[in-house]
Design a protein around this nucleic acid. Structure first.
Lengths: 221, 221
DNA sequence: ATTCTCCTTGCTGTAGACAGAGATCGAAAG
DNA sequence: CTTTCGATCTCTGTCTACAGCAAGGAGAAT
């Protein structure tokens, strides 16, 4: 047996609780499970065609990620976020993204930055064609990609966790053409700064972007 | 029923998986479960007097916290951290702690800062009496307290998670009188800056403290 | 002696069962 | 009519059982 064959040992056997975890995360982010709603293990398990064991394991992970809250002897409920929660999350998110942005300006390859620019272009197209759902997904992907360009997986992980918490809020909060235009303008600025590798400018835009996100989403409450 | 009675609804029924979670975390941090070691569910469960179900739930949470790694069909192993991992974690930790420090300078009450100073004094006493274990615990507590003084629980949570990952490394890495003295000196500086609410100075010390932590711990690898 | 194959053994992944806590609804007392 | 107590029922928390994968060793073939 040659050694070339064993090059990619990532066979990734997917277990049920992994599968369930993703499904639940999606259900929460898509709003199929509403904030405050209790997760009935029997019901959801039946719905997913899975016994309670892997379901419960997935719920424990979601709790650790901060997407659900576990009330002993009462079960798990989808976590509700207040305006204060949002502000606190965005503050940390801002800091993390600024760190990612600075490192990206310093360390990322031109190819990486070009790839991010590609995402940005595609996002603009979706904006013009008024495809809000796909626009939103790409928007999130761009933020993640900037952080990923830092080359620090720990930073990515923390960023991803926090981003997931407020993904839903961001989606339903950013409604309306005026808000949308504002967000796009900020993204234009971000991209311009990143292309110039101008860290100071990038950090500044990211800071303002987070603050205006907070204001835009605040209407939800 | 008056409303005063319901003031503290935190009866905190402790479930088994919560209990197990804490125990496992301690076992990993204390080194009773060594990095790379497989966690045999039957064995550990028997040792803790608990069936596999709550144990597995706790393991899922630990995986989400980044303390163990789950290999499908092979079980969980205590995560091994490389020098690179350490550097990446410390980089994020530095950023988070700097954010916490800046906010603490701006927002914390005098009482809070005095409380942190109290911890610091006690830590110095432990240094002089050469009580390394208790010194270490207080050291960690001080870092946490500074971040807590920011008043941002999300920030605390992220900080706590990352701190837990490298707690063990920090403990075994900071051995030796010279390293110890250096760490204490940095803490002195931090405390002085905090007492003066001099954010710039505090951020600077925190940055240097993290870097020297990295160097001190690097010998472990 | 080496390698391949098959078997055995141990452990994980999942399902199902059981006990106990909480919630709900109705009835009785004020 | 309101309130309180109690019975019932649902759902969670935990345990146990079972199936299937993985690793390791024994034996046979080369």
């Amino acid at each position: 047996m040659s050694e070339a064959v064993a090059e990619y040992p990532r066979i990734t056997r997917r277990t049920l609780h992994e599968e369930v975890l993703e499904r639940l995360r999606d259900m929460i982010i898509e709003g199929r499970l509403e904030p405050g709603q209790r997760i009935n293990e029997g019901q959801v398990g039946a719905q997913l065609g899975v016994s309670r064991t892997p379901l419960r394991e997935a719920i424990k992970t979601l709790a650790s990620e901060g997407l659900v809250e576990i009330l002993p002897a009462k079960g798990a409920i989808v976590r509700k976020f207040t305006a204060k929660d949002l502000a606190q999350i965005l503050q940390v998110l801002k800091t993390l993204e600024q760190l990612g942005g600075r490192m990206a300006c310093e360390l990322a390859s031109d190819a990486t930055i070009q790839a991010i620019n590609g995402l940005h272009e595609r996002m603009l197209a979706l904006y013009k064609s008024n495809n809000r759902l796909e626009y939103f997904k790409l928007n999130q992907a761009i933020h993640s990609a900037i952080v990923a360009a830092s080359g620090n997986p720990v930073l990515m992980e923390m960023h991803e966790t926090l981003q997931a918490r407020i993904k839903r809020l961001r989606f339903i909060g950013n409604e309306g053409p005026q808000k949308w235009a504002g967000a796009v303008a900020e993204h234009e600025e971000m991209m311009a700064a990143l292309l110039k590798r101008d860290a100071d400018a990038l950090l500044d835009v990211i800071g303002r972007h987070m603050e205006s996100t907070r204001l835009r989403v605040a209407d939800v409450f």
